[in-house]
Design a protein around this nucleic acid. Structure first.
Length: 958
RNA sequence: GCAGGGGUGGCAGAGCCUGGCCAAAUGCGACGGGCUUAGGACCCGUUUCCGUAGAGGAUGCGAGAGUUCAAAUCUCUCCCCCUGCACCA
């Protein structure tokens, strides 16, 4: 048994003592591996091992491949979550405390966490100790925290630089907003962690007949305006009359809506009116000047949109039902309403209603068709009508074609945009932001609204030139796995304005507006460059780190003497920092999880392209999958996380690393469960035990099975190396561990005992396991009698001359024989022939091998038979001396069916016999019957002539 | 809706780029046997169907069509699942 705790303690101490993972500029080729730095609002759970562990495996592998490698680590503490965290604790949030208890954090410690800086401090240490326990080969001298003064100086430089390049811009921007706290709210600030989703609706003005006033509607489907037959209001709700700055006339909307909208419109109330009063008004449809009534709509909610909706009974099931109900109730104004269809659904498409055999053209009312489809009558539940709406919108959006003048033939999305633009031009409509997943509540209990923030600073990722050069540069960057490249390209194209400053949070003040804090994704785009110099400048007074300093170190700008004099930073130290940056930043690999593709990773690319010289642009980005537990993503919100420390103490760091990192393809999610971990443990222990018992092995001349093991080993090295190069860690580890165990077992079962062979095999396997299971590998490496660290050894290289298809296929022959023999015995025993005494393995004559070769080359059986008939001596030569012409011809004829795929025989009769003799005890052990190997020509068996090259004839003797 | 990734045997998951050696690796599970006082662990075997003194056949990799001597693998159409869609780390 392996004592994981013991060997982890031992080797981690040894590594630290020998400083094997600390590295500085040397003549060797540099390689820097880093992972997106963790946000420090919780300790690590085993899900994090996926990214940090994968980075570690690459660092360790590259080190063994002769690179000078650093794997630095930093911590992200800026931003709002920690602040929210502290606030929640101040209020004694029970959910959060329960979460913390999962990580075994003491009550005293929790009490102190009402201070945000303490949270950052505590978890930074916590996470570091977890990473040390997991055995990551991190150079801890380069540790960095995003709240450090040094870091702020660096970020100020970055923002200043972006601004000087004209990449910052200012403007209006909609955000989720809490009216109570007067703050922007993101997912972390809401109840149940829901993201406030903001979308733009279209507000349409319907002039009231005889008044200089409008009813203001909102809609997601402005293209249906030509089909509007009436408006709906909620007769029970309070409405108000408002003036809106910048727009002529007065506007009616619900009181609730006026409250919500004041965060995006300059809106002032000038009067009040009840919903009932609105019913008497008549409106003009701006699209066709038709006069339409205002009716009470049962489904209209005062706090959604403006509390007034357009009614399109032809295309909106709710509208259709509402009118039907009004008609049934004898509403006079409703009685005359006829639905107006504005778009058709492309005939021939597999539309749900058509499949259900419901005609659409007959009724001219798609809304009714969808209601019929769902068997929804006039009294249907809201949920059912909702479902019909959803289905209709989906299909109309997909297959709908406009059928009104000016828009004929347009698809629904095209028409939507066109109508929206047209309404904007004519002044009859404008865009309005809404929360699509409303209601969303702030943690404080208030309902979140949309606020349009004025004077918001952005990083303009929409800048055409910047976008183009980023996309261009991206083509030269290696993406692992390659299949995520498209997602990146899309993200690079999609990203646009990105808010760079916000009102609250920990972090660096925004240089252009000191009341604001730099948004926390924007302050983590080029921090990796700091890893190259942080250990050098650690002692420098942050006040001296002026922009000129960073200009020199990172951009090579300015004269070092002048910069040193101007900033007060030591000249030599500054030169050293520059040298270090130039050295390390030339070759980097960046690791993170797929959810960062659309923000952090894309911004990482953009900022590097904008700021650094081409030589220091990213070289490789690596994206890995997540970790599942019982098929579900491991996350705090699901409550199914396992703290890293628990995982390590329960299973050991190496088995945990193995399952999480190598348990699945890089981009697939890996499944963590005890069963999987135990499987890894068993195998690690098998290798360990094999090394432990090495002393008992013999030596001597190499036998076939020794050559076989060497062939497997060298092939394994090739495969694993190829896999490691593209971080296919699953294949690499399958080769290094799973297959090695299978091969070793077979080797021993087949009587392999050669100590030299086993040592060679185990040595290479141990080194290949080292990146993923470093502690166990060190231990085994030393058991094999080595003194240095496996971690710093050379990765094994394959000896191609030891790889032999023939040798491996010979071993397959042994298996084939066993399988066939079993089958024969089973059948004979079923036929009641009792226990066999002995089994003959009759090996085909060499002339048959010669014939096989001829058939493989010729394919034409007839021709070959002719040749044999006319000149057997010459055709078969020495091998055919004792073969009767008749039996030769019979044999050839028997090959007719297989002629097409016939391959020349690989083994001679002598080799085949030798192999079967060597494997004899293994074979007889497997089938439980004594075996005897004989030559076809020596055999007295009647079946002997059935022997084929590579297929010995089996004859069971009773 | 848009974008990306997928759909393989009881399950998980390779294979697909570079078509044949694929009834399809590997692991788990299930079943049978061995070992054990017993269980666990471990070892051996079976795990689509049919046939059979063995080297054979049929069906088969979301559905359908096509290309090819040959398709899980290439092409097209369709269906379904997962993830993301912003100011939030």
């Amino acid at each position: 048994m392996i004592d994981y705790k013991e060997i982890e303690r031992k080797w981690q101490a040894e590594w630290e003592k020998a400083r094997v993972f600390e590295s500085d500029v040397t003549p060797k080729n540099p390689y820097m591996v880093f992972a997106a730095f963790p946000y420090v609002n919780a300790p690590q759970h085993i899900g994090h091992v996926r990214t940090f562990g994968t980075a570690d495996v690459l660092a360790r592998y590259k080190r063994m491949r002769g690179f000078n490698v650093i794997y630095p680590m930093g911590f992200h503490a800026t931003g709002t979550p920690i602040l929210g965290f502290a606030k929640r604790l101040q209020k004694g949030d029970a959910d959060l405390i329960r979460e913390l208890k999962v990580f075994h954090i003491s009550d005293e410690e929790i009490a102190k966490m009402t201070d945000p800086l303490h949270i950052a401090d505590y978890f930074t240490k916590e996470i570091e100790s977890g990473m040390r326990a997991a055995g990551y080969s991190i150079d801890w001298r380069r540790k960095l925290v995003s709240t450090e003064p040094v870091f702020s100086k660096f970020i100020e430089w970055q923002i200043g630089l972006l601004n000087s390049k004209g990449l910052l811009t200012k403007g209006r921007h909609p955000v989720g907003w809490c009216p109570n706290e007067d703050n922007a709210v993101g997912m972390h600030d809401t109840k149940h962690d829901v993201e406030p989703e903001i979308d733009q609706e279209t507000a349409v003005k319907f002039r009231i007949d005889g008044e200089d006033a409008f009813l203001l509607c909102t809609t997601f489907r402005p293209e249906t305006i030509m089909g509007v037959t009436n408006l709906f209001v909620n007769a029970e709700s309070a409405y108000v009359i408002c003036a809106i700055e910048g727009m002529a006339g007065k506007y009616y909307l619900s009181k609730a809506a006026s409250e919500n909208l004041k965060y995006q419109l300059r809106i002032s109330q000038v009067g009040e009116v009840s919903g009932k009063e609105l019913l008497s008004k008549g409106c003009i449809n701006p699209s066709n000047a038709a006069r339409i009534p205002v009716l009470p709509g049962f489904f209209v909610k005062e706090d959604v949109g403006t509390g007034i909706v357009m009614s399109v009974p032809a295309h909106a099931p709710f509208d259709y039902i509402a009118i039907e109900r009004l008609k049934a109730g004898g509403n006079a104004a409703a009685s005359g309403i006829m639905p107006i269809k504005v778009l058709d659904i492309d005939i021939g498409r597999p539309v749900a209603t058509r499949q259900a055999g419901i005609s659409q053209s007959a009724s001219d009312m798609p809304a009714l068709s969808y209601l019929k489809l769902l068997k929804a009558d006039v009294n249907a539940s809201d949920a059912l009508i909702e479902e019909a709406t959803r289905l209709e919108y989906k299909e109309e959006s997909h297959w709908g074609r406009m059928a009104v003048p000016g828009y004929e033939g347009m698809s629904e999305p095209e028409a939507r945009e066109k109508v929206k633009a047209d309404l904007g031009k004519s002044g009859d409509g404008f865009g309005l932001y809404v929360l699509t997943n409303s209601p969303v509540y702030c943690r404080c209990g208030y309902r979140v609204v949309v606020k349009v923030v004025e004077d918001q600073w952005f990083i303009n990722y929409g800048d055409k030139e910047w976008k183009a050069s980023t996309l261009e540069a991206f083509r030269g960057i290696s993406v692992v796995p390659e299949k995520t490249r498209k997602a990146f390209e899309f993200a690079i194209g999609w990203i646009d304005l990105r808010a760079v400053a916000r009102a609250q949070g920990l972090g660096t003040r925004f240089p252009l507006d000191r009341d604001k804090i730099i948004e926390s994704l924007s302050d983590s785009t080029i921090y990796m460059s700091m890893y190259t110099i942080i250990n050098i400048i650690r002692s420098v007074d942050p006040g001296k780190l002026k922009p000129e300093f960073f200009d020199y170190v990172f951009l090579g700008k300015g004269d070092p003497n002048a910069v040193a004099a101007g900033t007060g930073v030591d000249y030599g130290l500054m030169r050293k920092a520059r040298e270090s940056f130039v050295y390390w930043y030339a070759n980097t690999s960046s690791h993170s999880s797929p959810d960062l593709i659309f923000n952090h990773l894309t911004m990482y690319l953009y900022n590097h392209i904008a700021i650094f010289d081409k030589a220091y642009w990213p070289k490789q980005v690596v994206v890995n999958g997540t970790v599942l537990s019982e098929g579900e993503k491991m996350s705090k919100s699901l409550g199914n996380i396992v703290p890293l420390s628990d995982g390590i103490s329960k299973h050991g760091a190496d088995p945990l690393r193995f399952v999480v990192i190598a348990g699945a393809d890089l981009f697939s999610d890996s499944e963590y469960n005890d069963n999987a971990v135990n499987g890894v443990k068993e195998r690690l222990e098998y290798v360990y035990a094999a090394a432990a018992s090495l002393g008992e092995s013999g030596s001597g001349a190499l036998k076939h099975i020794d050559f076989w093991l060497y062939s497997k080993l060298n092939r394994k090295v090739e495969t694993a190396t190829r896999a490691m190069e593209i971080l296919e860690l699953r294949s690499a580890s399958t080769e290094a561990l799973y297959n090695s165990v299978i091969e070793l077992k077979r080797y021993f079962a087949r009587g392999g005992t050669n100590g030299i062979v086993i040592r060679d095999y185990l040595s290479a396997v141990t080194l290949m396991l080292s990146p993923i299971a470093p502690h166990v590998s060190e231990e085994i490496w030393h058991m094999l009698g080595n003194t240095g660290f496996a971690s710093t050894e050379k990765w094994p290289t394959a000896d191609g001359s030891m790889i032999s298809d023939k040798v491996e296929r010979m071993e397959n022959l042994v298996d084939d024989v066993i399988r066939d023999a079993r089958q024969v015995i089973e059948i004979t025993s079923r036929k009641g022939r009792g226990q066999p005494k002995e089994m003959l393995l009759i090996v085909a004559e060499d002339w048959k091998r010669k014939v096989n070769g001829m058939v493989a080359a010729e394919k034409n059986i007839g021709k070959i038979i002719e040749k044999v008939k006319t000149d057997k001596e010459r055709v078969l030569g020495e091998e055919g001396k004792n073969a009767g012409t008749t039996s030769v011809i019979e044999y050839i004829a028997g090959l007719a069916k297989k002629a097409a795929e016939m391959k020349p025989a690989e083994m001679s009769q002598g080799e085949e016999i030798e192999l079967l003799d060597e494997a004899g005890s293994y074979i007889s052990g497997a089938i439980g019957v004594k075996i005897k190997v004989e030559k076809e020509s020596d055999s007295r068996s009647e079946r002997a002539k059935r022997a084929m090259p590579g297929k010995p004839c089996i004859d069971v003797i009773f």
